[in-house]
């Protein structure tokens, strides 16, 4: 064929295909990279869960009830409408001692004014307490509810059968059955963020610093310092769950 010219048609075709392949690869490269950035779901390989013990504190005296935490949580974790992983309760105590607790109907609209004048009123942000002896784990029949070594109570959505035992067991009402996945759902302390050195979405969003997240294993972390400086209370300590969410400035009425 073209032997006399020293030109191998087969080889040149292969070369051309190679060149096209490389070119296409180069064209796709930036798109692939950008996409990977936006949906970068990779875990930090250097994260060592033996070195951390995550805790949480809420300074109720600082909370202004703006619900930035709730909005941030919903956006960060794609929480379905009508369900919450964290919420803010408003306690209104009237002169005769009646306690009224309410939540905002829509976190995009905030709290409404109350007509009757309470003698005392305050906000209490609530979240999963990430208990050291979490009851929700103990009742799970399939080992889908678990506690990580760094002290976060999580749900293995692959294992969960959605029986709802954990939802019933949690004394703090922190769990719900997700209507889309039909599995148990709860606050993860933004495990996908904290393991990359970021703050949970609610903590980052809080404009008044009412939510404090930190490492209890690190005695110099802001959380450890705060817990040494201030007096705190736990929610339902009599349940024996050893909650790890510390409340500062909490009233007797709060349950």
């Amino acid at each position: 064929m073209s032997d006399d010219t020293g030109h191998d048609p087969k080889k040149s075709r292969r070369d051309m295909l190679k060149a096209i392949g490389v070119g296409a690869g180069l064209l796709l490269l930036p798109i692939g990279r950008v996409k990977a950035d936006k949906d970068d779901k990779t875990a930090d390989p250097d994260y060592d869960w033996e070195k951390h013990y995550w805790g949480y504190a809420v300074d109720t005296t600082k909370c202004i009830g703006c619900l930035a935490c709730m909005r941030a949580c919903r956006a960060e974790n794609d929480v379905p409408a009508g369900y919450v992983r964290t919420w803010v309760e408003r306690y209104s105590i009237s002169a005769d001692g009646t306690v009224r607790v309410d939540c905002a109907k829509d976190e995009m609209k905030g709290f409404e004014e109350v007509k009757d004048e309470p003698v005392k009123s305050f906000f209490v942000p609530k979240i999963c307490n990430h208990c050291e002896k979490s009851v929700c784990n103990q009742v799970c029949p399939v080992g889908a509810a678990y506690r990580t070594k760094d002290g976060v109570v999580l749900v293995d959505t692959q294992r969960c059968i959605g029986c709802g035992y954990c939802v019933q067991a949690c004394p703090y009402g922190s769990r719900f059955i997700n209507p889309t996945t039909h599995t148990a759902d709860k606050c993860t302390l933004c495990y996908h963020r904290i393991t990359k050195g970021m703050q949970p979405a609610c903590v980052q969003a809080c404009p008044k610093g009412a939510r404090i997240f930190g490492d209890l294993a690190d005695k110099k972390s802001p959380l450890s310092i705060l817990l040494r400086q201030r007096r705190y209370r736990l929610l339902k300590p009599e349940m024996g769950t050893h909650p790890k969410c510390y409340y500062i400035g909490l009233d007797r009425e709060v349950i």
Partner: peptide, 21 residues
């Protein structure tokens, strides 16, 4: 413990952080 050993790693990769700060 009494759970899938690879679950915590999966929980780290469940989604990309949305809030950029």
């Amino acid at each position: 413990g009494h759970y899938r050993g690879t679950a915590p790693k999966d929980a780290q990769k469940v989604r990309a952080p949305q809030h950029q700060g």
